[in-house]
C-alpha cells in the first residue's frame, strides 16, 4: 500500500465514522494538534468529529535529507472526536484493519504516554500505540486545552504517516517509501528537506525572525483585543513556528526559552477563553444541532 493509499484509506474509514474530512491548515505548525480544527474546536461543550492530514514542521529535526528517520517536515493523520466515544480503542484498531494490519498477527500495545504542550497550555493522558515495538500512533484524552478543562473530553489520535508506512512497506529509509507507485517520498521531499535544513541552520536571518516574533505577538494581541479569535490564532501559530526556527538556529538560550514559551502560552490561553466566550454568546450552535439530531 503506497503512502497516498494509506491516507485515502484512513480518510475513507474516518469519514464513515462521521468525521468531517478537513484539509491541512495553511499556516506553518509543529503538530496537527495546533491546527485550529483541533485546538479551538476541542474547547467547549460542542460535539466535534474531524479527521485530516497535517504536514508538521519541526525545524530542529531537519537533517538535510540525510537521516533515514528524522525530517524537517513529516505528516500526521489526525482524528479528533468529542466527546470521546466509549468504543474509541475499537474504532482505532478497526482503522488499522482498514490498512491491512490484522491485530492478531502482530503485537499491538497501548503503552502509557502522557502528552503536554507547554505553549498551548494543553495536556492529556493516554498511550503511544506500539505495533511490533514501533510507535505508530499517539492516543490522547485531552484534559486541558488552552488552560481550560476539557469538558466534555476530546480524544485525539495522531498517526505518524511515515512510521506507519515504513512498517507497511517494510522500508528502512523514509525517502524510499512509495508515495505513489513508481514515485518515492524522496522524489517529492528530498529537495525541500535539504533546502529547509540549509535555511534553518545556516541562512535564516535570526535578527529578522526575532523581530517577526515580536510583530506577530503584537498583532495576535491586537486581534484578541477585538475578540477576533481565528486571525489571532493564526498569528499565535506564526509566533510558535518562528520560535521553533529561532531555537533550531541556536538563537535562544535556555533562560530565554522559558520566556518565549510563556509568551506564546499567555496568548494561547487568552485565545482559548475568548473563543469559549464567543461560542457561548452564539449559544454553542453545534450543540443544538446535535440535540436536534438526537431528537429526530
Amino acid at each position: 500500500m503506497n503512502v497516498q493509499e494509506v491516507i485515502l484509506h484512513l480518510q475513507d474509514y474516518w469519514a464513515k465514522k462521521d468525521c468531517f474530512i478537513m484539509q491541512p491548515y495553511d499556516v506553518e505548525k509543529g503538530a496537527g494538534t495546533m491546527n485550529p480544527m483541533t485546538f479551538l474546536r476541542s474547547i467547549g461543550p460542542e460535539p466535534w468529529n474531524v479527521a485530516y492530514v497535517e504536514p508538521s514542521r519541526r525545524p530542529s529535526d531537519g537533517r538535510y535529507g540525510e537521516n533515514p528517520n528524522r525530517l524537517y517536515q513529516h505528516h500526521q493523520f489526525q482524528v479528533i472526536m468529542k466527546p470521546s466515544p466509549d468504543n474509541i480503542q475499537d474504532l482505532y484498531l478497526e482503522s488499522l484493519q482498514a490498512l491491512g494490519i490484522k491485530p492478531e498477527e502482530h503485537d499491538i500495545r497501548f503503552v502509557e504516554d502522557n502528552w503536554e504542550d507547554a505553549t498551548l497550555n494543553a495536556w492529556g493522558l493516554g498511550w503511544e500505540v506500539w505495533l511490533d515495538g514501533m510507535e505508530i500512533t499517539q492516543f490522547t484524552y485531552f484534559q486541558q486545552v488552552g488552560g481550560l478543562d476539557a469538558d466534555p473530553v476530546a480524544v485525539e489520535l495522531t498517526y505518524g504517516i511515515e512510521r506507519l508506512c515504513s512498517y507497511i512497506q517494510d522500508k528502512e529509509n523514509v525517502f524510499d517509501l512509495e508515495w505513489q507507485d513508481g514515485f518515492t517520498y524522496g522524489d517529492i521531499f528530498y529537495q525541500p528537506e535539504y533546502e529547509h535544513s540549509m535555511y534553518t541552520f545556516n541562512i535564516a536571518d535570526l535578527d529578522m525572525l526575532k523581530q517577526l516574533f515580536i510583530t506577530y505577538e503584537k498583532e495576535a494581541g491586537r486581534a484578541l483585543e477585538e475578540g477576533l479569535v481565528f486571525p489571532a490564532y493564526d498569528y499565535i501559530l506564526k509566533c510558535s513556528h518562528t520560535f521553533n526556527l529561532l531555537e533550531a538556529g541556536g538563537a535562544i538560550s535556555v533562560t530565554e526559552r522559558t520566556g518565549y514559551i510563556a509568551r506564546v502560552r499567555k496568548l494561547a490561553r487568552k485565545c482559548a477563553s475568548i473563543h469559549y466566550a464567543n461560542r457561548e454568546k452564539l449559544g454553542f450552535p453545534l450543540l443544538k444541532e446535535a440535540k436536534e439530531d438526537a431528537g429526530s
Binding site: 492478531e104 502482530h106 511490533d132 515495538g133
Partner: peptide
C-alpha cells in the same frame, strides 16, 4: 522481548521489533 499474545505469526513481531531496534 515478551509479546502480548500467542505463538502464531511470531515472525511478524520479531521482524518488526528488529526493525525498530535497528533504527
Amino acid at each position: 522481548t515478551v509479546r502480548n499474545g500467542d505463538h502464531r505469526h511470531l515472525e511478524n513481531v520479531q521482524k518488526g521489533n528488529e526493525k525498530v531496534l535497528r533504527a
